[in-house]
Amino acid sequence: MGINRREFLKIAGISAVAGLGGTSAIDLLRRAPVEASQVSPNPKALTAKRWAMVVDTRKLTEADCKRMIEACHRIHNVPDIGTKQEVKWIWTEEYKHAFPDDMNEFVSDEVKHKPFLMLCNHCDQPACVRVCPTKATYKRADGIVMMDMHRCIGCRFCMAACPFGARSFNFGDPRPYVKEENPKYPTRMRGVVEKCTFCTERLAEGLMPACVEVSNGALIFGDLDDPNSEVRQALRSNYSIRRKPNLGTQPCVYYIV
C-alpha cells in the first residue's frame, strides 16, 4: 500500500468534513413535518398596517400610570429587581428626562411635574433592528418591533443602539424577582434582552394592549396608516410631540401635551 502519512491525514480530514457537513446538509434538506400552509393567524386577531400609540398626557395622573405599569409588568412576568440592573417595559419619567433635547427650563409647571409614560417606540426605522446580529429583534409587517427570546445571544448591541433606553437586559435569572407568575405568559431567562412588544400576544387574540385597556382612554392605540383610525383622529385634532424625532428613527408613540 503506497500511502504515506500526509495522504492519510488528507483523506481522513476530507472524510471528517464530508461526514460532518453531510449530515447537517441532510438535516437542512429534510422536509419540515409542519407545512407552512397548515398554520394561519388567529381570525380574531386585531390587525393594522402600522400600529401606533397616542399618549394623552393631559388625562394621565400618577395613579393611572402606576396602574398601567402594574398591569403590563404583571401579565408579562416582568421581574421587579430594583437595582441599576433592573428590567422594565413601561415606566414614567419627568418631562426633562423624557424629552432631554427640549432643554426648556421654563416649561409650564404642569408639564414639568407631570409623569410621562415611557415604553418602546416601535420605531419605523428602528436602530435596534439594524444592529442585531441574529435577527433576534426584528420589525413585523404591522410595524411592531418584536423580540425573539429564543434567538437572542445577549450581545446588547440593541441596548447601545436604542436612543430611547427602552431595552433591559436580564443580567441574572429573572424568576426569583417575579412575584406572581402569570402562567399564560413565559418569563425570560438570564442573558437575553427584553422590552415592550405592544402586547402582540394580546393583539393576536383580539385584545388591546394591557396598558391601553386599563388607561381609561388616556392611551389610544390604532393603525397609523388608516386616516380614519382613532389615533389619526387624535393626532389631527391635537398638538403632539415625539421623543427625539431628529434621530430619524420615526417613533410610533406620540404624546399629546
Binding site: 439594524r130 444592529v131 442585531c132 446580529p133 441574529t134 435577527k135 433576534a136 434567538r151 437572542c152 445571544i153 445577549g154 450581545c155 446588547r156 448591541f157 437586559f169 436580564n170 438570564r190 442573558g191 437575553v192 434582552v193
Partner: peptide
C-alpha cells in the same frame, strides 16, 4: 461579554449583513 454564549453560532446560522457585528 455575551449573555447567552452557547447561542454564539446564531450569528452564522442567521447571518445578518445589516448588522456591523456580523
Amino acid at each position: 461579554d455575551l449573555g447567552q454564549p452557547q447561542r454564539l453560532l446564531n450569528v452564522i446560522l442567521h447571518p445578518t449583513p445589516n448588522s456591523i457585528l456580523f
